[in-house]
Design a protein around this nucleic acid. Structure first.
Length: 476
RNA sequence: GGCCCGUUCGUCUAGCGGCCUAGGACACCGCCCUCUCAAGGCGGAGAUCACGGGUUCGAAUCCCGUACGGGCUACCA
């Protein structure tokens, strides 16, 4: 079973996990799971200033919610623990020293002000300290990697093919900061090596720094993993997706009532396709068919409308049990938009199917089902009279409906429909007019679940009493 | 500015030299179905394949250039 595939997600805990990060996680996971590989989560918390409390938990929580599981990680440990870079400092320091000893890196004590000036003048670092031979402790210093001055670094990207970079154009970047923490470049390489990572799938924004990583591997005599740079996820205006474009974190989508299976399917399709025709695929299917060859090279715009459609699709095809459980779980997690108190699962099981084809998100359920769980429905008396009918006529119709429904043998949808249709004929009004009045009486809504199923679910007693009340209101 | 990546309907994409008068999906429009709203069915509109040169009997597909878009250019990731 061991294919030698070892991939990893290396998030930086600086806030809510962005959908782009989650898609990267998904592709890594699908790749590993489809090949009997190992999926690792490693926290890259090397920037002390940008740490955001709780982001690791949110990241892990989002992955779990989506059904993405990992074999080694900060919460479960593993053979390569620890999985927080802040706890692996000694390793980076050792490698940095080794690099200095080999002449592949050097200490630099240039002041920030000087750095800024040089950058302004020439656009980068001028390698001022490269030949100074500074030792650790001479003064506060960083370790910079000494890029080769000539030649090119060639990356064989699994998605983009061959990409070459002129070494002389790449800065002598900082590998170890003065606070003893490594930068991404160093830590990433050291850990990917230590953890035996075979493939690195990461966002396209890393492409320009890949020659740095390749050079570090080379200087250390290490074999680099294979790289694949994933296309970016874009906002509606084709710029990088960010907060000002609305929801960007998985948590927000969960809160808006999206199903994890829809989210996974949708995200998988953002930058990857099976054949251009097959769109709906479960996570298990995706694991089987996902390949890097079919990942696209261009950025993909996040189409919220399509996500919405897909979510509706998953809601419609969910089993009654799955839907009821999803709603219960959702309402429990986000009570504001739910039904409270939480209904019994049994009761929900009976009524949720009535509205599932009119839902796009779980949020849509409560407004449509709320009346089932209330003693009293609320509405404007004026809503009762349908188009072309007056109050007296409506009242008459409701009272007649009461009779018709009372005498029903079985109180089920078909019987109710039959009785009501016959009644409308007798009264000489359109079926829609009668149904509309009863709908408002029973549900308090103009847009509601299908009437006959609704009355059946409500039961004879509640249905009749609601209609009676409506008739009474019309009497006034 | 420099370096790198990208460019097929509004959007996600199929296409890897002839099957393309460019296919599918979302969104949009119309019709049907219909107790409201949906869902569903059927149909429509929508892409001079960014542009310009090549290569070839033949190019959306290969090559070059240009334009445009994006990313990177921190002791951030």
């Amino acid at each position: 079973m061991d294919s030698g595939v070892r991939v990893r997600l290396a998030p930086s805990p600086t806030g809510s996990p962005h959908v782009g990060m989650i898609r990267t996680a998904l592709y890594n996971w699908l790749f590993a799971r489809g090949r009997g590989g190992t999926f690792i989560v490693r926290i890259e918390d090397t920037d002390q200033a940008r740490l955001v409390e709780g982001s690791v938990e949110e990241m892990l929580g989002s992955l779990r919610w989506l059904g993405i599981d990992w074999d080694e990680g900060p919460d479960i440990g593993g053979p390569n623990a620890p999985y927080y870079q802040s706890e692996r400092l000694e390793g980076y320091r050792r490698v940095a020293e080794a690099l200095v000893e080999r002449g592949a890196a050097y200490r630099c004590d240039c002041a920030p002000e000087r750095l800024a000036e040089v950058r302004k003048a020439s656009g980068g670092y001028d390698r001022h300290c490269r030949e100074r031979g500074l030792m650790e402790g001479d003064s506060p210093s960083v370790v910079r990697f000494a890029m080769p001055l000539d030649g090119r670094t060639v990356l064989d990207d699994l998605i983009r093919g061959t990409v070459a970079f002129e070494n002389g154009l790449v800065d002598d970047f900082v590998a170890l900061k003065s606070d003893g923490f490594p930068t991404y470049h160093l830590a990433n390489v050291v850990d990917d090596r230590a953890m035996g990572i075979s493939h690195v799938f990461r966002g396209e924004e890393w492409l320009p720094s890949s020659p740095r990583h390749l050079q570090i591997y080379d200087a250390l005599g290490w074999e680099p993993p294979r790289f694949a740079h994933l296309p970016q996820i874009l906002a509606q205006d084709r710029s990088k997706l960010s907060k000002r474009h609305g929801a960007t974190s998985v948590r927000e989508y969960r809160e808006m009532g999206y199903l994890p299976e829809a989210m996974v399917n949708f995200l998988a399709l953002l930058g990857w396709s099976l054949d251009g025709k097959t769109e709906v695929m479960s996570a298990d299917e995706l694991k089987r068919v996902f390949t890097l060859e079919r990942v696209s090279r261009s950025g993909a715009m996040f189409d919220a409308k399509k996500l919405e459609w897909m979510n509706g699709h998953y809601i419609r095809q969910a089993s009654h049990e799955r839907l009821a459980d999803a709603l219960l779980e959702y309402w429990e997690a986000f009570p504001q938009g739910g039904v409270s108190p939480l209904p019994e699962r049994e009761a929900l099981l009976r009524v949720a199917p009535l509205v599932r084809e009119r839902m796009k998100t779980l949020q849509d359920a409560a407004p449509l089902l709320g009346f089932f769980f209330q003693d009293e429905v609320e509405y404007d008396t004026a809503e009762l009279a349908q188009k072309g009918m007056d109050a007296a006529g409506t009242r008459e119709a409701l009272i007649r409906a009461l009779d018709a429904l009372e005498g029903l043998e079985a109180f089920d949808g078909d019987s109710i429909e039959g009785a009501l249709r016959a009644l409308a004929g007798e009264l000489g009004i359109k079926a829609g007019q009668l149904f509309g009045s009863i709908r408002v009486a029973a549900t308090g809504l103009r847009v509601a679940p299908p009437l006959f199923g609704t009355l059946e679910a409500l039961g004879r007693e509640r249905s009749l009493s609601a209609i009676q009340k409506a008739a009474d209101r019309l009497a006034g």
